[in-house]
Design a protein around this nucleic acid. Structure first.
Lengths: 167, 167
DNA sequence: CGAATTTCATAAGGCACCCTTACTATCTTT
DNA sequence: AAAGATAGTAAGGGTGCCTTATGAAATTCG
């Protein structure tokens, strides 16, 4: 059997990117989790991020929020259960469509949202320490592009964006 | 609703980076999982990545491989159980330290490793489509920096930094 | 109009990732 | 030789996210 490991050097810088992204996410999530716990906020990272997204989309329906977050509606539903239990959001009947519910922030949520944003801010400031403004921008733009590219490879994404189903 | 969120703009580009990284990781993992399944490789992404790392560190002990991967020894242990069951790696007694085991690739693993590298390659080529060589490099360097920064915030990181001088 | 289909939220269940704690066997130090 | 550190691992848990199925309401259409 002959192995074609000659190409390994060329591929190496590729598969490293995969590890880098996955490692970043793990580290980031862990750091966020630690900070949230330290700050005494009784939320998981997923719930906290959901709340942040809801803050930007106050009054939206669950489908829209889930789409914005890039998760399945069911995944968001679980977060909302928790957030509602904690009194941070409310599910209100949508008058236009009685199947749907509008997710509204409660008055008491403001403080929590501020705290979460603050923790996020600290973490990301630490994480990007030593990164030039310019490269910070490129990093974000590159990730936006990567995400769009990956999203396009999702089979069901054909329904949303791609007109091509030559699969 | 009538709240002034003037400060939000300043923070926004920060917390977006967090979402971007986490989203990338989720999309990447999902894409990898799909491709691995399609290719008929009976591995999870974590197991596959472990195997790739082992390929670069053939004959190392589990602690070193775990450190390289950035996971706890126990996490790696579970991957190894699976990889060993599949006949892709072997645990060999380390002659110098009978507590330790050296992880060796089996002969049959070459094919699997090639397949995994290939799938990774395809995914990452897709993911970085439209990204200039220059920005690709900056992306990777920025992530390396971010990972190092985040790693430094881990409480137990003080313990981790020392034991690695045999490189 | 009424039946079929679609859509929104959700209940139920599952897989993967990764961790902490605790234990055994083996080094290392004193 | 006794005490403590270290390599691997068994056990178990929390989180993230998914798929499938269900009930209710909306929409399409014969």
């Amino acid at each position: 059997m002959k192995f074609e490991d000659e190409a390994k050097g060329a591929e190496k810088h590729m598969d490293i990117l995969g590890s880098l992204i996955i490692d970043s996410a793990r580290l980031l999530r862990a750091a966020f989790e630690r900070r949230i716990a330290q700050a005494g906020l009784e939320l998981t990272p997923g719930e906290a991020l959901a709340l942040i997204n809801i803050a930007d989309l106050d009054g939206s329906r669950q489908l829209d929020i889930a789409a914005r977050m890039g998760v399945e509606p069911m995944t968001l539903c679980a977060y909302l259960d928790k957030l509602e239990t904690l009194g941070l959001v409310e599910r209100q009947q949508c008058s236009a469509d009685r199947r749907a519910k509008r997710i509204k922030l409660t008055e008491t949520s403001g403080e929590m949202i501020g705290s979460i944003r603050n923790e996020l801010n600290v973490i990301l400031t630490q994480a990007t320490e030593g990164l030039s403004e310019e490269n910070n921008r490129i990093l974000r733009e590159a990730l936006v592009l990567v995400n769009a590219n990956l999203q396009a490879t999702v089979p069901s994404a054909a329904l949303q964006t791609a007109p091509d189903e030559s699969r």
